[in-house]
Amino acid sequence: MFDMSTDPPRKTMSQLRRGTVGYCVMALLGRRERYAVELVRELAAHQALAAGQGTIYPLLSRLRSDGMVATEWKESPSGPPRRYYSLTDKGRASLERFRGEWKQFSDAVDTFMED
């Protein structure tokens, strides 16, 4: 339960973000696998998506336990081993479904948001 009246845009955006940032992660991984630091940097570069790089780790954990992404430790050319993330078949299927629906959804919202 949350009170929409306190700060509607902020609350709404936080809900929207919660539902969509996972798919942004999956879309990034759909192109190629990435290691953790690389992944959270690319996402957090968009301030509209995340408050900071660290806030993306809990999301990565959820995607992993939901079977959407898989992880693997690999040696790094320099420094400590890196945890690599890749998209699973289940994640790819879920991403493709979302892609189609998101297009329709955002087009529809845009129609109403235009001044």
């Binding site: 900071g52 660290g54 780790y57 809990p58």
Partner: peptide
């Protein structure tokens, strides 16, 4: 700084 405050990071984990 780029990581976000510990409280923000913990709040994100709580939300999940």
């Amino acid at each position: 700084d780029e990581l976000g405050t510990p409280e923000e990071v913990a709040a994100a984990a709580r939300a999940e």
